[in-house]
Design a protein around this nucleic acid. Structure first.
Lengths: 325, 325
DNA sequence: CTGAAAGCGCTAACAG
DNA sequence: CTGTTAGCGCTTTCAG
């Protein structure tokens, strides 16, 4: 079942079928409809490999995440899938396993089979990103790189809210529990923390860095306790949940003895114990926005990388892990 | 940078390069190595669309799940990705949004661009599955269909363990909280429940069906309470966690007043409150096994659908949501 | 073992 | 507006 079969059946040239099927406005509407009807009746499905080979457009984009099974990406995945489906694009999800090398290799290898890629929390260096962007349209999420379109969820603003919240509860000794130093978000949050602390005349302190997994929570909890702080803001929810677990093990009351604020409001943040006060962001929207930006680059590949950067707001969701000092 | 460039540089025919690069054993080892060196040096990456078009093999398989953001699939996703990467296959993750129609359409549309597909918890009818299997190699997970290779995580066996556990704690009135009736796993668990109840001389009861999401937990909790049972086995952890939340809201002590057993041991089951006693299965292994089965079908497409069915064991993980009656 | 040649199914100029 | 003619980059007979 090829385009030729359809053409033969309709008594027209293959190229006419091609146009009828994939060039909306052009061609005689009557013949176009006739051809479409025949194609449908014949149950014809275009061969996307052939389309890609000949046109250069693959109709496929990729979403790269450092770990598919990190609930942090849930919203982003949902958002991008939603939007790319709406745009008639296929989306492949790629797990970079937190490795910059793997990330780069994947992109390079798949370059020809993709129209573009969205990097959620890229681990690549700025240099590498810029170079890759020359070979394939790229959009980043939660990572700002000069000249690359990006969408970032504005956690700094949320961090300020979190500190405000803690200060209003009487906390004067707040520590930041740092994630990996290579993480762009971690940097951003840390700086926001410092700024917020200064604003309230507090001393800025931090413990870490810790790996981003839940298991690092043990070490993190011990470090926080050791610091003597009465409250902490944790790099992300995964780590915060791990920390909560350890705190329970050690019999430390939350929020009685220690208040805990997480970041990202992932799946689980609402049902862990105690439910976590955390920063919520519009992750789905971020995903949709990223695809939109990519779509913009796709329409006109030679466009000057419309250096649009979308900044999305976050807000503090107060649950039960924070309380009076 | 095409195969022709490499050929020109090496002073051989394109066909020779093609063989050197993708036919392991054949050709003169010396020239093969020379060509490979040149290809590497030229940073040549084969165009997979062209390969696919001409050879018919796409080097891509798909994993279809009903909802990418359901933590139940985490392990399976990990396992399949691991195995397909090892086999040099690309894997695309497709979200069928719980819709049989979408699932079928997707498979039909992508048929030509896939070497095969793995269906994790397919919602398609047996008829539809068998028909599709004729067009593209298929492997199912947690769904047994005559003639299709499948891997199923043996929850019935685990259910028996769960009932045993509850009975040994003195429970005589155990209710099964049912998931959607269209779910194959739900059927399997329900039957296992009935059998286990009979074995212990208990009356078999169930409430539901409920939707599989966390939000259905509210209704489920109320129904269970209303049933007067002292323990329940819940279709899956998502629902069980929702139920736990509602129980807490109503001030019902778990496991004091009611013991709860979930199924699947998803992300979150260990840190919800109280931590959930649940059935754990080797999800990653299931994913790997599914890819293996598919690989078998791929090697020899005309093979008689080696109706192998892999059955993986589950075990009960006891946490704190179960206790004496 | 290697080269030449013929496509895979489609799109994209270019004519008509 | 439609048909004709070339390929896209690769694999695969088929000869040599």
């Amino acid at each position: 079942m090829t385009i030729n079969d359809v053409a033969a059946r309709a008594g027209v040239a293959p190229s006419t079928v091609s146009r009828a099927l994939s060039e909306p406005g052009r061609g005689n509407p009557a013949t176009r409809e006739r051809i479409r009807a025949i194609a449908r009746e014949l149950n014809y499905v275009p061969n996307s490999q052939a389309q890609a080979l000949s046109s250069g457009r693959t109709g496929t984009i990729a979403l790269l995440v450092s770990d598919v099974t990190n609930p942090f990406y849930f919203g982003i995945i949902r958002g991008t899938q939603q939007m790319s489906k709406a745009a008639g694009l296929a989306e492949v999800l790629i797990d970079t396993e937190d490795s910059p090398d793997l990330e780069g290799d994947m992109l390079r290898k798949m370059r020809r089979s993709l129209d573009g890629a969205i990097l959620a929390s890229s681990r690549l260096s700025e240099r590498a990103l810029i170079r890759l962007a020359g070979e394939i349209p790229l959009v980043t999420i939660n990572r700002n790189v000069r000249g690359l379109p990006s969408v970032v969820i504005d956690s700094p603003d949320g961090i300020a809210q979190a500190v405000e919240h803690l200060v209003s509860l009487g906390h004067r000794d707040i520590v930041y529990v740092s994630g990996p130093e290579t993480s762009w978000s971690n940097q951003a949050r840390w700086h926001a923390m410092r700024k917020a602390a200064a604003k309230h005349g507090l001393e800025f302190r931090r413990v870490g860095p810790f790996a981003r997994g839940r298991s690092s929570g043990t070490a993190a909890a011990d470090a926080v306790l050791n610091s003597g702080a009465t409250a902490c803001v944790v790099f992300n929810d995964l780590l915060a949940i791990g920390l909560l677990t350890r705190l329970a093990e050690r019999g430390v009351a939350v929020p009685g003895r220690l208040s805990v604020v997480g970041c990202d409001d992932i799946f689980g943040a609402d049902f862990c114990h105690p439910p976590l006060t955390t920063l919520s962001g519009p992750a789905e929207q971020a995903g949709r926005a990223a695809v939109s930006l990519l779509l913009g680059r796709l329409g006109d590949p030679r466009a000057p990388a419309a250096r649009r950067a979308v900044l999305l707001p976050t807000h503090l969701t107060v649950r039960e892990s924070t309380g009076p000092a």
